[in-house]
């Protein structure tokens, strides 16, 4: 599957909208923002369809993957949006990371845990923000613009290594003397 897929789900009380632009999207954020509600609505709709009282708009089928038979379900799931909720034990396993590699699904993981076994973009990390009956979904990490760099409001910068990123931020923050930690 490729390209942007729009997803929306709502009931009488609440509505969620999500644009899925990559094969892996991470949803994280504060407690009480509706992440579990979103997953439960997808689950109920996938089991009962419109008779659930939920309206789901997405050009692809949506399921919630859970339970001990996840491998069998995943083997038989194609061209779908697969949601996995937080505290699902297989989510951070190597077996799961391997299983999703060559599938044709898009994945939405609700989790706060790092998933180093699964490649995903920093732009794919989103958070749900409270907004009454229409919670907003927004990117967690923002790109730094030229004006951000010139004013450099940060006290600490952590970079991955001593190469390009370290050199760049050293120059960008020359006047501020921030502390750098880098992995050797």
């Amino acid at each position: 599957m490729k390209g942007k897929i729009s997803f929306s789900i709502q009931n009488r009380h609440i509505a969620f909208k999500l644009d899925l632009e990559r094969n892996v999207t991470i949803i994280t954020g504060d407690s009480g923002t509706g992440k579990t509600k979103l997953i439960n609505m997808v689950r109920m709709y996938s089991e009962l369809g419109k008779s659930s009282g939920i309206t789901l708009k997405c050009e692809k089928p949506c399921i919630v993957l859970s339970g001990s038979s996840w491998e069998t379900v995943l083997e038989n799931t194609h061209e779908s949006i697969v949601f996995v909720e937080e505290s699902t034990s297989f989510l951070s396993s190597h077996a799961f990371a391997s299983a999703i590699q060559h599938t044709d699904n898009y994945y939405v993981f609700v989790t706060r845990e790092p998933l180093p076994q699964i490649p995903y973009s920093v732009d794919a990390i989103k958070q749900i923000v409270k907004n009454g009956r229409k919670p907003k979904t927004e990117k967690l990490y923002q790109k730094i613009s030229v004006s951000d760099v010139s004013t450099f409001p940060y006290d600490v910068v952590i970079v991955e290594d001593s190469k390009a990123g370290f050199i760049f931020f050293s120059r960008a923050s020359e006047k501020k003397s921030p502390v750098y930690f880098r992995r050797r």
């Binding site: 954020g29 504060d30 407690s31 009480g32 923002t33 579990t36 937080e86 505290s87 706060r112 845990e113």
Partner: peptide, 26 residues
């Protein structure tokens, strides 16, 4: 929410170890 449930469990069930990744920063 999972975060509130986790807080209530920690407060009331003192002999268990709970995973606080069920809690957001709030």
């Amino acid at each position: 929410s999972a975060g509130v449930k986790t807080l209530l469990l920690i407060r009331n069930v003192k002999n268990k170890i709970f995973n606080i990744s069920n809690c957001g920063d709030n």
